[in-house]
Design a protein around this nucleic acid. Structure first.
Length: 877
RNA sequence: GGGCGAUUAGCUCAGUUGGUUCAGAGCACUUGGUUUACACCCAAGGGGUCAUAAGUUCGAAUCUUAUAUCGCCCA
């Protein structure tokens, strides 16, 4: 076989992905096997693959591939999310660049543009996932706005409304003046900004020189003031009670009210109240029955109610009004001030608190089972610390504002009549029927109905995802949802625990009386080496596609996982995929070594090879068991590290070196076949992490039939490893390391044979491994002795002592120094052991196993000390 | 201000319900190596008072309390 000396991922990856697709390995249909289901966290339809997706989807693919190899019916459902705000913003922007204003278009015209955009860009990210090797069932690809999903969303709205859980209310919302929509609390990012605290004087009504001073960061809002508030306990302001003040510039008379909400320490202790533009002021306004004067337009400019600066932007007005106030003598002072200001996650403009009519979902009852079943571990979080965060949020839940003032999304199925009443229905026809019933007018036509202009929050569709992808909302009893739901694992970032995870759990219990997934695995954020978030502005995010071209998809996959514990942030650096690429090369080269051996069926298997294979066979069971344990506990990084070191150290450096025939000599058939078999097993353990290279090698390892694939090969068994053999072998390795150290210290070339004499003790020297010891140590002979050997360099493994006779090369002083250091250490060790053993309470209270271990330590240490002392005396003598 | 979490080797982090030589891994570092699979490698090494202090225990990186520093969420 002609094997290229270097692994070239580009020649391999597309080929095997196509093979897997052609053979239908990714596709799942319900059958009698146990299902293993994951639904993808649907990426944003306008998005392109970034490093966060890479991490997240690599983990999903690993879990799905392993489940498949374990014989489960694995189904990974892919799809995308319509992302109302982000997509609409992009489409609006694109139209703007073409000279088209959104508001010159009809709703339908705009939606046509949005769909066009979606069809053009919507599939990109899914195609990119294929490069990563994602084994999604592409036949099941869903979109939150396709027909089945859309109908599910509308049906759910109607149902929740009928249950009395959806209501219309006026609330202070987070208004995004750029997107012209309300956004949820979770979509507001608070940033620390350098601003100013303005101290403004308000004249007291009926007086020419008396005034109160208030402090504000937002002087432009004074035009909406409807009161000034003091703390009733504040001694300084007792004389103001019951008086009124004049709003500067417009001279509106407003009352001085009293409320303990006012912090006497902050600012001047006098607070201006602007109920329409601050959430706390709004609440005080309600308590004190104050008027709300909304001075802003939806675009964030001032309206006629402000009286001044009408039509100007809120931030422009801030500068202008301060100058005017100063001129008018109302500015007492201006201080630098650092505060936190909310910005829209989507458009990055400053959020304006605004009174607005919106649709809300009552959460109080809905969250109960969702909270309970996380706290009692029916749903498990990995890592579990996120339970606390979850409990805190769910315990302080507020009603969910589900309407958005946008066009792209699911239009709210509420139809208004002229008389202000409304009906809620799944479609126009049903709405008309309802309306006719409501009005008693059988001749009513659609013209009399006006559908709500707003759409639903995107999360109101994605919270149905684990159900709706199996069409379980429209058809709750269908075969697919019955089979695949609940799903097994959800892999997602902890940043959307409330947006999405909590809400999916809520719908799971509301609509299927069951959790949507058994486990939630939280990934951390991918950051750059300095710990900064990856962002376009910083330009610190590499393009995953480029990375895969350079390092191979497998290399990038494992690079992402090398340092990625659950929930912890991943500090990405290009050395990681590089390490992954290097590992691919290592496996490739191991394969080249094995496949290039000349096989001779006529020679018998040497003893050292027999031992090596027997050992590795057992070791592999242990490795598999360790990996299984890591997987069970969602320690994906640890599972990878286990197989990584297994390949590098145990397989390549030990097994292959042990069985490797002498230069230019053939290998016996038995050993060869067994090594091929072990290689096959190792590739299987690697496959979930590195699907491409493992398939390539597995196909070349032996003759394969069309339709065979490592993807559907069985996961290796882990039962009943011979742990005694494996442990004994560790002593052998230690002995060989000891010999290597001597060679290094004394500059003895590896090709020169040396002699070894052993003063053996039980449990640390095993004669049955002699052939391996001889080969790996390049020994001319091994002999047993009963006493110390003079003129030799020695080392100890546990209680056995090993001697290499090297008269000429020994430096007695150096040897003595080493021996004395070792003696000192061992004596110290013995002391600590004896301290424990002489403590009666330890012997009485500690488990017997622990005591026995300490006794063994004592015996070993005593024996070792005796040998060391003999050596030292003999060298001195 | 309220809550949650973290602090272990130069860096990033494990440490599984307190007990095997338990102080670990990977990377980085030092030294040696043209042993023909691999320098994208191999071998051998150095490196930490487990943030600090007190406590519980026969025994603490692990449990308790306080302090310091940092991070996240909420206000």
């Amino acid at each position: 076989m002609d094997i290229p000396s270097k692994y070239n991922p580009e020649l391999v990856e597309d080929k095997w992905y196509k093979y897997w697709m052609d053979k239908g390995f990714f596709h799942s249909e319900p059958d009698e096997r146990t299902p293993y289901t994951i639904v993808i966290p649907p990426p944003n339809v306008t998005g392109v693959l970034h490093m966060g997706h890479m991490l997240n989807n690599t983990i999903q693919d690993i879990l799905v591939r392993r489940a498949r190899m374990l014989g489960m019916n694995a189904c990974w459902v892919p799809g995308t999310d319509h992302a109302s705000i982000a997509t609409e913003a992009k489409v609006v922007n694109k139209l703007k660049n073409e000279g088209i204003d959104k508001y010159d278009l009809s709703r339908d015209e705009f939606l046509n543009h949005a769909w066009e955009w979606t069809h053009k860009h919507g599939g990109i990210i899914l195609e990119q996932l294929k490069k990563l090797g994602a084994s999604c069932d592409w036949d099941r690809t869903c979109f939150t706005m396709d027909e089945a999903r859309s109908e599910s969303v509308i049906k759910t709205f109607v149902d929740l409304h009928n249950k009395g859980l959806i209501y219309r209310g006026v609330r202070m919302v987070n208004w995004d003046p750029s997107a012209k929509t309300a956004v949820s609390d979770e979509e507001v990012i608070y940033k620390e900004v350098q601003s100013k605290l303005y101290y403004l004087k308000y004249m007291i009504e009926g007086s020419d020189n008396e005034f109160v001073t208030i402090a504000t960061t937002r002087p432009e809002t004074i035009l909406g003031d409807t009161a000034v508030c003091i703390n009733p306990n504040d001694e300084r302001f007792q004389h103001l009670k019951g008086k009124r003040v004049l709003v500067p510039l417009i001279n509106r008379s407003i009352p001085i009210i009293e409320d303990e909400y006012v912090d006497m320490e902050f600012g001047t202790g006098c607070l201006k109240i602007t109920p329409a533009h601050d959430i706390h002021d709004y609440e005080i306004g309600i308590t004190h029955n104050l008027e709300s004067i909304d001075i802003f337009t939806d675009e964030g400019t001032l309206n006629e109610k402000a009286q001044l600066y009408v039509g100007q932007d809120r931030f422009e007005v801030r500068d202008v009004i301060v100058a005017d106030l100063d001129k008018a003598g109302n500015v007492a002072k201006i201080e630098d001030y650092t505060n936190k200001v909310g910005y829209s996650e989507r458009t990055d403009v400053v959020i304006e608190p605004k009174l607005s009519t919106q649709w809300f979902l009552k959460m109080e009852e809905l969250v109960k089972p969702a909270l309970e079943n996380v706290m009692n571990d029916n749903i498990q979080f990995h890592p579990a610390k996120f339970k606390n965060v979850y409990r805190h949020w769910m315990g302080n839940i507020k009603d969910w504002c589900i309407s958005r003032q946008l066009w792209w999304g699911h239009r709210i199925p509420v139809y208004y009549l002229d008389n202000g009443k409304f009906v809620v229905a799944e479609n126009d026809a049903a709405a008309l029927e309802e309306a006719r019933k409501l009005t008693g007018d059988a001749n009513l036509t659609m013209d009399a109905l006006r559908q709500d202009e707003d759409v639903l929050d995107t999360w109101f569709s994605s919270w149905l995802w684990p159900i709706s992808v199996f069409d379980g909302v429209r058809n709750p009893d269908n075969k697919e949802v019955e089979y695949y739901y609940p799903t097994n694992d959800l892999i997602t970032g902890h940043d959307i625990i409330f947006f999405w995870i909590a809400r999916m759990i809520i719908t799971g219990y509301e609509y299927r009386q069951q959790f949507p997934f058994k486990n939630v695995y939280f990934t951390g954020m991918v950051r750059d080496k300095q710990g900064r978030k990856m962002s376009k502005q910083l330009g610190n995010s590499p393009d995953p596609i480029d990375l895969m071209k350079i390092y191979g998809a497998d290399g990038v996959r494992i690079g992402m996982l090398f340092c990625s514990p659950a929930g912890g942030d991943l500090l990405f650096d290009e050395s990681l995929p590089e390490q992954g690429r290097n590992f691919s090369a290592k496996i490739w080269n191991a394969f080249r070594l094995v496949k290039n051996w000349e096989v001779d069926a006529n020679i018998p298997q040497p003893e050292h090879a027999r031992i090596g294979i027997e050992w590795f066979t057992e070791k592999l069971k242990e490795i598999t068991a360790t990996m299984n344990d890591h997987f069970d506990k969602f320690r994906i990084s640890d599972a990878l590290m286990t197989v990584y070191t297994a390949v590098r150290d145990e397989f390549s450096s030990w097994l292959l070196e042990i069985v490797k025939p002498e230069y230019q000599k053939p290998i016996d058939k038995k050993t060869y076949d067994e090594v091929i078999n072990l290689f096959d097993q190792v590739l299987r353990l690697l496959h979930p992490f590195m699907p491409f290279i493992t398939e390539e090698l597995w196909q070349m390892l032996e003759e394969r039939k069309d339709g065979e694939s490592i993807m559907v090969a069985e996961w290796p068994a882990a039962n009943d490893a011979n742990t005694a053999l494996v442990n004994n072998f560790e002593s052998l390795k230690e002995t060989i390391s000891g010999l290597r150290k001597i060679r290094k210290d004394k500059n003895i070339p590896n090709r020169d044979q040396i002699e070894l004499m052993i003063h053996a003790a039980e449990g640390s020297y095993f004669e049955e491994f002699n052939e391996v010891l001889k080969k790996m140590g390049n020994l001319s002979s091994i002999s047993l002795v009963n006493e110390e050997v003079k003129g030799a360099i020695s080392f100890r493994v546990k209680a056995s002592e090993f001697y290499v006779p090297l008269n000429d090369l020994i430096d007695p002083e150096e040897e003595l120094k080493k021996l004395e250091e070792e003696l000192k250490y061992t004596q110290g060790f013995l002391n600590s052991v004896m301290k424990k053993l002489s403590n009666e309470r330890f012997v009485q209270n500690a488990p017997e196993k622990v005591v026995t271990i300490e006794r063994n330590k004592q015996a070993d240490a005593e024996l070792k000390i005796k040998m060391l002392e003999e050596r030292i005396n003999s060298l001195k003598g």
